[in-house]
Design a binder for these strands. Structure first.
Length: 462
DNA sequence: TGAAATGTTGGGGCG
DNA sequence: ACGCCCCAACATTTC
């Protein structure tokens, strides 16, 4: 009997367009699918992504069963756990994919050094970081040339779902429930359940809905948190329930604005590939000298959506309740935390890591650094969002604020984004007592802006 | 994938 | 008719 090969699922929990699955099948050997939960620090999975992972693994188990294969679940340090699985099954090779983050690349290296025939296929990215290089041969430091380089090529053709996966007799598997990925006491996942359908079928349905609807108005609709103008594919892409290549091909060439968002994600992954310390240190070293403030009360107010700035609080509460925040609002809350509150961007990165269902190491790190000004092609330090103006521009009727900050429900639209400026009669009409039923702003926006500009200017002066 | 300050222009009210 | 001022609208520069 021929030795099996392991098909090691990582951030690619699907059976369609799965290059590692196809490579494993092409060996002709029996294929044993396995998933390993490795909680090693740093950057072990946060709470919201653990919730998603549970459901994604349950869905993948179903998809594989329909193809005649089990999904073996194991928990432990990845290198030892894979080696143990090889020893138990006599596997001759390992086929895998996923996000090429520093930890998983180190694991690959260790396994290869131990003599494991490990094949990592590209299941997560559109293009290889070694292929997308600037004229001088280095990685692109600016987004637009990066995107243009990608747009001159095509992702590889899509791979079909196989008819069947010939599997060997399975070794023992953990029970998914025993991993305790779902919250209990308190069960904070009600809003997540109401918002999402994790799994490959849910991902396809989400894409279908987007292609039928919002994509037509995407160039402007994507900026409106009060409307369903975005694809909401991010957590599905995070877990590889749908491949970026599938989205690229199905969207087609007529929707450049959306494809460029896929490429913004790609840019983040490539940045992390080239710079393993991206999640932990400013990419521009000068920013290490930034005099960040340590203000636990302000940080907690930001976490809980109690800053007194309506669009910020709406975004933070949407995040807390649904595990997701509209992209425009992510920029606003991040700019507020970093600039008006002068908080180290890593504090925001850590919170998003724990609360976002779509948290991935590359996008989270690259985008926080982008807002901070310390990353690739970053917003210049002096670009400071005014949350009041942003609110008026992108949530003109206040519907988004009212949805997530119900205290402000009855406030007139002309005051909804700056209740502290509302006359007493307007507050009384709305049943609002600032400082009691809704907070006063925890920082004066003009003061915060001036303080940030001063600090950033000092940094620049050296 | 800003915002605010500053500068410029031109229409209209008014003496 | 003319100059003056105000100010909105837009453009430029500065942070």
């Amino acid at each position: 009997m021929t030795a099996p090969v392991l098909l090691w699922f990582r951030d690619d929990l699907r059976v369609a367009d799965h290059a590692a699955l196809h490579a494993a099948l092409e060996t002709g050997a029996p294929v044993l699918p396995i998933y390993v939960l490795d909680d090693a620090a740093p950057w072990s999975m946060g709470g919201a992504t653990r919730w998603w992972l549970h459901h994604a693994l349950a869905a993948l188990t179903g998809s594989l069963a329909a193809l005649g294969a089990p999904l073996v679940l194991r928990r432990g340090p990845a290198v030892e756990t894979i080696q143990a699985a090889i020893a138990e099954t006599g596997a001759s090779a390992v086929f895998t994919g996923g996000m090429p983050d520093p930890k998983s690349r180190a694991v690959d290296k260790a396994l290869a050094a131990a003599g494991v025939a490990l094949h990592r296929l590209r299941t997560f990215m559109l293009f290889s970081p070694t292929d997308i290089r600037s004229g001088s041969g280095g990685p692109y430091a600016v987004y637009t040339p990066f995107a243009n380089a990608c747009l001159t090529r095509e992702p590889r053709p899509l791979l079909p779902v196989p008819d069947r996966i010939p599997a060997p007799p399975p070794p023992r598997s953990d029970r998914l429930e025993d991993w305790r990925l779902l919250p209990t006491r308190p069960d904070w996942a009600a809003g997540l359940r109401a918002t999402w359908t994790p799994g490959e079928a849910g991902a396809q349905a989400r894409l279908d809905r987007f292609l039928r609807g919002a994509i037509a108005g995407y160039p402007t609709g994507r900026d409106r948190p009060d409307q369903a103008g975005t694809s909401m594919l991010s957590p599905h892409l995070r877990f590889g329930e749908i491949s970026a290549a599938t989205v690229w091909h199905r969207v087609g060439p007529g929707h450049a604005t959306f494809v460029k968002e896929l490429l913004w994600r790609e840019f983040s992954i490539h940045q992390l590939w080239h710079n393993p310390s991206l999640p932990d240190a400013p990419a521009k070293p000068a920013f290490a000298a930034m005099p960040w403030r340590d203000d636990p009360l302000a940080l907690t107010a930001w976490h809980r959506g109690r800053t007194g700035i309506p669009i910020v609080d709406a975004g933070m509460r949407q995040l807390w309740q649904t595990g997701w925040m509209h992209n425009r609002v992510r920029m606003i809350v991040a700019s507020f935390l970093i600039k008006h509150l002068m908080t180290d961007w890593r504090q925001g990165e850590a919170w998003f890591w724990d609360t976002l269902v779509d948290a991935d190491l590359a996008a989270n790190a690259a985008n926080w650094q982008w807002v901070a000004g310390s990353g690739a092609d970053a917003a210049p330090y002096f670009r400071i969002f005014n949350p009041v103006l942003q609110g008026r521009k992108f949530d003109p009727d206040g519907a988004y604020v009212r949805r997530w900050v119900p205290e402000l429900m009855r406030l007139d639209t002309r005051h909804i984004h700056a209740p502290w400026e509302a006359p007493a009669e307007a507050l009384a009409r709305a049943g609002l007592a600032l400082g009691r039923s809704y907070p006063q702003p925890i920082v004066d926006l003009g003061f915060g802006r001036a303080r940030a500009l001063e600090a950033f200017a000092a940094l620049r002066a050296g």
